[in-house]
Amino acid sequence: MEGGTEALKAKALVLRGAGLNCNDETEHALQLAGANTQQAHINELIRGRIKLADCQIAVIPGGFSYGDDLGAGRILALQIKQALKREFQEFVDEGRILAGICNGFQVLVKTGFLPGNCTATLTDNNSGHFEDRWIHIKAAGRGIFTKGIEKIYLPVNHGEGRFIAEEETLRKLNKNSQIAFRYCDRDGNESPEYPHNPNGSMQNIAAVTNEKGNVFGMMPHPEKIVSKYQHPRWTREELPEEGQGLKIYRNMVEHAEERLV
């Protein structure tokens, strides 16, 4: 029986390399959510030693791929487009889950797997520099990633997280329920004010999906709040043991497992 459940466990791959740096905690969150996990360097995918097709979930974690030179995510996106386009395209077309957190989100926008290609982008924060702070986001769309989530309190740690898009793109994102999370204040009211909206994103957008809903990108870091002790105020507030961010990873794993059955 045990072997049976093992077989139904979703396999998740966390991408590594070239300055990505949140791979360990992202893998840990996926493990807590019940996935079988593996980290793979981009070169291992390019050389075919590890295959994307063997997994149901792939996450590009946060970090500074290529030092954000030429713009965050740009060079890693180029590398994926040049060397792994087909593998990623098939993976997405089959409805598997591709998620990018922070730098991963920037990469996915710049590859075009999420709205990008001159229609949307992530660019410099209004403040002009990197900022680390805790913010609230509220679930906006219906979909795999937001299931059962109302609001999450979690950190942003980035310098280029301002989501901007053309009007037409914004309209489509809204119409197709592609906006997954928006920045809000502590009472859940959507707010464009700094620091509730920490970077100046249009329409307070913190996370989006592709049209089909299986590619997901978000700037804040849900893997940084999977336990109560990661919360900035656990020494003064009553909090549940599990951190609110874990639910997003649970949603990914549950969805992948449902598809396995």
């Binding site: 740096n21 949140c22 360990d24 905690e25 840990h28 946060g62 520099h129 990197f130 900022e131 680390d132 702070r133 805790w134 950190p155 740690n157 870091h221 893997e223 940084k224 999977v226 002790y229 990661q230 900035p232 105020r233 656990w234 020494t235 003064r236």
Partner: peptide, 23 residues
């Protein structure tokens, strides 16, 4: 100054450099 530094990466910072009701 502190906010420009990433103090959350690696997800192990359990007592952060900024604390209290308003962090």
């Amino acid at each position: 100054v502190i906010r420009q530094y990433d103090h959350e990466v690696q997800a192990g910072t359990v007592i952060k450099p900024l604390v209290g009701a308003e962090n």
